[in-house]
Design a protein around this nucleic acid. Structure first.
Length: 495
RNA sequence: GGCGCUAUCGUCUAGGGGUUAGGACGUGAGAUUCUCAAUCUUAAAACCCGGGUUCAAUUCCCGGUAGCGCUACCA
């Protein structure tokens, strides 16, 4: 077997392992995307694993929300697992560690002395390392107390007093090391017998033959504990790659509680982000193709992505109370919107009209789409940009809008009356409208801009709208004339 | 407190011992235009501080500071 032959055995296996304690947020989404990109770039496998060992905080709603967010991204994954279904495996692993003497029972009651620094062994005067007496408990006494039904947590017996240094090379952060003496005796099993994240995660990573762990930098220092677990399990540790964190403008780590729905993936979806644009935006946070390109398709991202190009500093998502979306995300979305074929864009917009309660027939929406595609940043913007195409009655507007800057109501009236006349007979296509209305303006001795404003407002119900002739062509003669008639009526009130 | 990580325009970033420190978003100005957009041009805007190494440091090293993370029977 030559080593150039691609075999499944040496292809990377990566995993995304969210815990269902809340909705999928942007940080989690980026971790998922980077894992996906790495898997696709290398021809590897992406595992989705629900790390649901915290029974207290898990909710079914979170599970649904995570899948909802992931499905929207549209990237997919190759294998799927649930830690809660692997409980027996985790307990056995804990038992094995205990049997090997690598773990011990800690009978200290849970939450006993969280803030009492005088109890518990400390390094120098630093952090808590383990509860006194428990590490040294004899096997006999430990067994006796356990048999008597006394609750206990199972802790890893971190090697101490050996001046041992724990080391690993992170694909992003480089050489990492820490003294084993500084690592606390972390829990493997809770007193209710449930495995902790550390144990379940490491066991599953080993068992599922994960080759690369790509996750948030908040786990960087946990990795030393994980190294110990892999060692105890007799499994070679995978390659680690930690990602810089996504933070709020105030520098704080994004939190569902503090920042609310602005960090939820579904918020982006509901506002009308294209999944591809969202992915593109997230990739640019903490990673760069290093060639000044920012607009990238999924294929381009896949081709360009490497862990070496991930940077180390946290990235701020620039949202505010007024605007939940980073301006760059908005810009990128607008770019992706414009890159879409009209048919596709039109189809993407459709649901937003339905949601707004507007009847937008697909053929008509298809005709409208090119008129608004350069005027919207979010899909939902299409509704406010184009609603007047689909309403029967224009929303009431201030008749003063009909009057151009350098003009009066009389001028507006003249323009509209003249338009009414000429529009009655000409063919209603863009070119004819263009020709006719420009001629009309000239005839009235007006500049185009001056002459078109009353018509635009009459027809669209607002000053800012898509190009006039195209708009009128889509609306059709009857609607245009009816709206001009109404405008003339409302002009009365100004006299 | 202890341990760890990080530090380039407002934000995302490129770069790297000698550069006019580059790009993008956003912001200002102008052009174009039937309005608004889009587009084009253009302007303002950054190497955290202090030491060291060096002919030369924003870049390398050390220290400081700041921010973040971990320090749970959360993940």
């Amino acid at each position: 077997m030559s080593d150039s032959a691609p075999s499944a055995a040496n292809k990377p296996r990566v995993r995304f392992a969210p815990s269902p304690t809340g909705y999928l947020h942007v940080g989690g989404a980026r971790t998922f995307i980077f894992n996906w990109l790495y898997a696709r770039h290398t021809g590897g496998t992406l595992v989705l694993r629900l790390d649901d060992t915290d029974v207290e905080r898990n909710t079914e709603a979170s599970v649904q929300s995570i899948f909802e967010g992931l499905r929207w991204l549209g990237l997919g994954w190759d294998e799927e697992y649930k830690q809660s279904e692997r409980l027996a495996l985790h307990r056995q692993a804990a038992q094995d560690l205990f049997a090997k003497g690598l773990a011990y029972r800690d009978f200290t009651p849970a939450h006993a002395e969280a803030d009492d620094t005088s109890s518990g062994q400390s390094s120098a005067q630093g952090a808590w390392l383990f509860n006194p007496g428990m590490r040294e408990l004899s096997r006999e006494e430990s067994d006796r107390r356990a048999a008597a039904g006394e609750p206990f947590a199972l802790r890893y017996r971190v090697p101490r007093g050996q001046s041992r240094t724990l080391r690993f090379t992170d694909s992003v952060y480089g050489e990492q090391s820490k003294q084993a003496d500084e690592v606390e005796d972390f829990a493997l099993l809770r007193s209710d017998g449930m495995p902790t994240y550390h144990l379940a995660s490491c066991f599953d990573d080993a068992d599922l033959r994960i080759s690369h762990i790509i996750r948030g930098q908040d786990h960087l220092t946990n990795t030393f504990k994980h190294l110990l677990i892999f060692e105890g399990l007799g499994a070679p540790p995978p390659q680690f790659a930690h990602l810089p964190l996504l933070v709020a403008p105030d520098g704080a780590k994004l939190s569902k509680r503090k920042h609310g729905p602005v960090v939820s993936v579904t918020t982006y979806r509901d506002a009308g982000f294209l999944a591809g644009a969202f992915v593109n935006f997230l990739c640019l946070l903490g990673w760069s193709p290093k060639n000044d390109r920012e607009f990238l398709t999924l294929d381009e991202l896949t081709a360009a992505f490497t862990l070496e190009a991930v940077n180390r500093a946290n990235a701020v998502i620039n949202f505010t109370e007024d605007d939940p979306f980073d301006p760059k995300a908005l810009w990128l979305n607008a770019e992706h919107l414009r890159a879409l074929p009209v048919e596709q864009l039109s189809a993407c917009i459709q649901p937003f009209f339905e949601q707004a309660g507007l009847d937008a027939p697909p053929e008509k929406l298809l005709a409208v789409t090119p008129l608004i595609r350069e005027r919207i940043k979010l899909l939902r913007d299409a509704v406010s940009a184009a609603d007047f195409f689909f309403v029967k009655e224009l929303a009431p507007y201030d008749p003063k809008e009909l009057v151009p800057q350098k003009g009066d109501a009389a001028l507006a009236r003249r323009v509209l009356e003249h338009a009414q006349q000429v529009l009655a007979t000409i063919p209603f296509d863009t070119d004819s409208l263009d020709e006719t209305l420009r001629a009309a303006a000239a005839q009235l001795g007006l500049k185009a801009g001056q002459a078109f404003q009353p018509i635009r407002v009459a027809v669209c119900g607002r000053k800012n709208a898509p190009p006039l002739f195209e708009t009128m062509a889509v609306l059709g003669r009857d609607v245009c004339l009816a709206r001009i008639r109404q405008a003339l009526e409302s002009l009365q009130s100004l006299a």
